[in-house]
Amino acid sequence: MGRSLLKYLIAFTFFSFSGIVILDYFILPNYVGYNNEHYLPDVRGEYLEKATYQLRSLRFNTKPILIPYSESHTPGTVIKMFPRAFTKVKEGRTIDLTIAGKDEDIEIPDISNLSLRNAKLTLTKLGLGIDTIIYEYDNVISDGYISFQLPRKGQTVKSSTNMTLGVSRGAPPDYYIIPDIVNYSLTRARKSIINEGLRVGEITYEFQPDLVPNTVIEQNMTAGMRVSFPASINLLISTDKQEN
């Protein structure tokens, strides 16, 4: 009986060990896909065709996402990828590839009377950028909508072109208040004047080595004063360059 029990224990141990090996090395890997995973190669900087070939050779799918042209990227090359390079990914996964767009001829669309948000979406889809946004009062165009655009509709430009947009602030107020912009930088002063619905007037420079260059020293209209029209404010600006 002792020998039978020993044989039984040996057989039980053998089959248990064999079962664990089969489960660990054959069944589980096929079930969870361990043997079907690969580390993603880094295809950033490659042209779309080559990147697609490399990924599909590892049985990945690809999804190109085209973005507008930029001088900092070569058109047609991969800028980003998701999941990221060197990530372990299962076969059959779709890899998103962000591709730099080409500098193409674009006909400027008519975005007048669009909201600023919709205008931005329209321009972005065409690869056009926005350089400057000017807010101004308008008796006709509703608040937050495009009042003018440069270049104008119908003109043909490159897709990398930046546009200037005018955005309505609605009907003008009964009066305008002159802002206090002394000691502002010139850039900040311009924005403050425009935001009040006023205009930037004549800009003159004065040598002031003790001040930060492009600082507002004086303004020709008194801060806090009310005016009934969009007046122009003249500015005296500091410079560290002395005239010869």
Score class of each variant (00 low, 15 high):
G2T: 09
L5K: 10
T13C: 12
S16D: 04
F17T: 14
V21R: 05
D24N: 13
F26M: 10
F26Q: 09
I27H: 05
I27S: 06
N30S: 13
E37S: 09
E37P: 00
L40I: 03
D42P: 02
E49R: 13
T52M: 12
S57G: 07
E71M: 09
E71Q: 10
S72C: 02
H73R: 08
T74M: 14
P75G: 06
P75V: 09
G76F: 03
V78G: 00
F86D: 14
V89H: 04
E104Q: 13
D105V: 10
I108K: 03
L114R: 02
G129N: 04
G129V: 02
D131Q: 06
T132C: 07
I133T: 11
G144D: 08
L150V: 08
K153T: 14
V157C: 09
V157F: 11
K158V: 07
S159W: 08
N162R: 08
M163Q: 08
T164V: 14
D174G: 11
Y176T: 04
I177H: 04
I181V: 15
A189N: 03
R190C: 00
S192T: 15
S192E: 13
G197C: 05
G201F: 01
G201L: 05
P209R: 05
P209N: 06
P213K: 06
P213N: 10
T215H: 07
V216C: 00
Q219H: 11
G224Q: 07
F229V: 12
L236D: 00
K241T: 11
